[in-house]
Amino acid sequence: MNIFRLVADLLHLASIFILLLKIQQTKSCAGVSLKTQALYFVVFVTRYLDLFTHFYSVYNSLMKLFFIASSAYIVYLMWKPYRPTYSASTDTFRAEFLIVGAALLGLAFPDSWHILDILWSFSIYLEAVAILPQLFQMTRTGEAETITSHYVFALGAYRALYLMNWIYRYYTEGYMDVIAWVAGAVQTILYADFFYIYLTRVMRGRLFSLP
């Protein structure tokens, strides 16, 4: 564990709390992509099957359980109690293409041919693009509530810190994980445009709106 990875994981955790806070405070999930949230649930469930086969640390297991449980809870909130506030008409990105694409990549380039590694690779590829429905929705509406942009920013910052963690681990431990690196780089690049708009608008106290 290094500082980049620890802060990244904590930011990831924070992003989920920000999202839950937004839904509770505004009593609405308007502007939040249910597709992105459902994709994250699929990502966590397919990646963390090693909870049953391998023990790393209490920290590792608790984080995994939290990510699975919280993503399931968010999908439930959006699907049931807050359904009337869900902006379905702007959440129109074709998420099935992302799932099929990630599945094909997972089968073509798995970490190994073990079923857990195929699913792990699938989850890595899927996580890289899971934010797309959310970014697409923000583009369609042209703006987002500030708290929704904080959520996306925390997620993007978590990914950016993972890149630094990999550079650090490469030099200190010789650690290499090409699949995670490539997918992680793609994932971070997807946030690039968003970062710029976020920093120039939200940080100056203006509503997140696209030029």
Binding site: R5, D50, Y56, N60, S112, H114, N165, D177
Partner: peptide, 10 residues
């Protein structure tokens, strides 16, 4: 059966 690889990152 071969073991799955170890992935220590979240």
């Amino acid at each position: 059966d071969e073991e799955a690889k170890v992935h220590d990152e979240l």
